[in-house]
Design a protein around this nucleic acid. Structure first.
Lengths: 132, 132
DNA sequence: AATTTTTTGTTATAATATAACATTATGTAA
DNA sequence: TTACATAATGTTATATTATAACAAAAAATT
């Protein structure tokens, strides 16, 4: 079987929802929102999420246990992700900075480990919240 | 009330356990291990963990929902953390690289956000697992 | 000593995620 | 085009992670 080149029904339903959302979505919030479309059990959502993360269509924001659609169309796999997170309003934005990604993709320390993947989360106050 | 300068009994018990561990510990594994010392409920553990994270004695490895002691004695708060994680044996090491931390502490993008904190997790295969 | 803040203890429950197994669909190859 | 292998689905149950709410005790501040 060759690599799946199209999304299955469940994957597409979940992706559509996450892409339409202006904020990170939690798994059970996704579940609630897709129940009318026939996905009734958590596992159906988690399996779709797993696959979508694997192929890079969405990313998991680890510190929030939430999922966002990848805005970077060239992103084929979730192997180099960076986010900015506002600790006040919880707005999350994917950082797309080629200098940063180059720096991190090339990072090596003296551990002998070759890193194939990273996830970076920055925290602070967004412009709006800073001025309150 | 001024800033707490010593740990409470529960905090010390949890910290001792995490510091002795050679691997990241999960909250309920901590709970199990400190029950003989009188911490019977999850909340007692989570509260100690929260405080210990806040003061930088331990860090949370977000992608693993696990906790490690901070090896960096100068670390007063958990505001700039980086880890290397082996995806095979799950060994986690805190990265202590001044060039990296300087780079990330000074990182700015065009979002107008000032970042006060970050967490970075690198994934790959450790030396041992690479040679298997 | 009175006040405030922090920590504790406790029970219950919420939120997040996976195990296990039977079934159906899809791609691969004889 | 039928067998075979792989992947996705549906389903029930359960494991894992984390917090709410409230009363009480301990510690620092005035």
């Amino acid at each position: 079987m060759q690599k799946q080149e199209h999304l299955t029904k469940n994957q597409q339903i979940v992706l559509d929802l996450v892409e339409k959302s202006s904020e990170p979505l939690k798994a059970y919030s996704i579940l609630f929102n897709v129940q009318k479309k026939g996905l009734k059990a958590p596992l159906q959502v988690y399996r779709a999420l797993d696959k979508l993360v694997e192929i890079g269509k969405i990313h998991k924001v680890e510190s929030r246990n939430a999922f966002v659609a990848c805005k970077n169309s060239s992103c084929q796999v979730s192997k180099a992700t960076a986010f900015s997170i506002c600790e006040s309003c919880e707005k999350v934005t994917e950082i797309n900075n080629s200098k940063l990604s180059k720096y991190l993709n090339n990072f090596q320390d003296n551990s002998g480990m070759k890193y194939s993947k990273y996830n970076l989360e920055f925290f602070g106050l967004c412009k709006k919240c800073k001025n309150k």
